[in-house]
Design a binder for these strands. Structure first.
Lengths: 228, 228
DNA sequence: CGGTGGTTTGATGGTATTCAAATGACGTGG
DNA sequence: CCACGTCATTTGAATACCATCAAACCACCG
């Protein structure tokens, strides 16, 4: 039986697995969410952070005027809810894209862990620093790259990420809708659709619904550097 | 004499002032930099973090292909160099826009502080969480707002920031060049120039070199919500 | 077998970029 | 103190890219 539910946790950028010998397992709460469920909404009180054990989610920022921006797609091993660490309120929505299993660490537990373990401190700080750098890369992409380049970069990054999760880097199903991906890339859905089509006709990828086959990594990389 | 050099430090989002009773003042090193000097370059080893006491700086990310993106303009009270906390190397350049005074905390000192003080832990984590949220807002701006809206938002934010630093919110000198500002906003310099001109003709602001007078805050806000 | 939501395709227009040249600010040396 | 050179900024005209609007198409589900 699974008294140590985190032992299957995929340790990627951040995982509290190392913390387990500092905490009573039974204090940890786990929960299953379904597609379209929200883990939290902007404005909610911050009560702790969450590790995504399985499934997928997206985080969304909204501003006055109805503009929404998808900030991240989250995959197993990632830490969710850190946006509430600033002033005890969450600023983004987090919504699941698939059935997901999530592990909760209360603010109190987190504080204890941070006090006790230098490893945990470094893990959290390192994870946040890494997120900042990734956000900066995203900004640069959206700000300076053409639509085709943004898509190429997304596909390359995603391919690499799939392989680091032990999955095929050449053939995968996207968890997000076209609308979500377009929003994330800062494009209109129609533009994204046209770009996917263009890449397909160029023999770079094969598209079938949410299934993507990457046929030519070199061509994909060329799209990033030379545009078109 | 100034044996406690941080006592004038403007405590804004983050300041180590509270740490001073945990550290020997004389361990802290201070340094003056001139305009155009670099605090660090991408790839440099991470040796510690810096508090900006006076002056101004910009941080810049570069990717293969020569694309550069200004990520932040930094003002007194801010913590610099946290991009190196992830894997012991800096990923961005930080360059001064003006003569600046900087206070250095070595990685060892920082670790000590984090171990000793819950306040410091929360300050750092909170500051990083806040930066993430601000980066997200920037992404949303660049991704979804028109050029005019981006400029309007920048001017409003800057005005507010000036006032929170105890300076006039209606009349200020920008520390950065047009080129820098355009890059930051994700626009061509020509476009930025035209937008400034347009705002001026609309009676929203008065522009003279780097001096900006905000004549009509309401109109400025309207530009943000209704575009044009 | 309709219906619905999501996706694709087509035609058009607007916004911002690009290229080019003019203008202006500023610092240096004569 | 002014002339000159350099760099930054502005202005103009043409173009490209992407968004928008509109309609068709398709997968999925009851």
């Amino acid at each position: 039986m699974q008294d140590t539910p985190c032992q299957n946790c995929i340790v990627k950028p951040f995982c509290f697995a190392r913390a387990l010998d500092l905490l009573d397992y039974r204090q940890l709460s786990h929960k299953i969410y379904e597609r379209r469920d929200f883990l939290m909404r902007a404005g909610d009180d911050f009560i702790g952070v969450y590790a995504l054990r399985s499934g997928a989610a997206k985080s969304i920022m909204t501003i006055e005027g109805g503009h929404e921006q998808i900030l991240h797609f989250h995959y197993p091993g990632e830490l969710l809810g850190t946006d509430g660490l600033d002033n005890q309120h969450h600023v983004n929505d987090i919504q699941f894209l698939d059935t997901s299993n999530v592990c909760f660490f209360s603010a109190v537990q987190l504080d204890e862990l941070l006090a006790k373990s230098e490893d945990i401190r470094h893990s959290l700080i390192s994870a946040m620093s890494k997120e900042i750098t990734e956000d900066h890369k995203n900004l640069l992409n959206v700000s300076q790259l053409s639509g085709a380049q943004r898509l190429a970069r997304f596909l390359m990054d995603h391919s690499k990420q799939m392989s680091s999760r032990g999955l095929s880097p050449n053939c995968f199903d996207l968890v997000m809708s076209r609308t979500d991906l377009a929003n994330y890339l800062g494009l209109a859905i129609e533009t994204l659709s046209r770009l996917l089509n263009r890449f397909q006709r160029a023999g770079v990828i094969k598209v079938n619904q949410r299934r993507i086959d990457i046929l030519d990594h070199k061509k994909l990389h060329d799209h990033l550097t030379t545009d078109t």
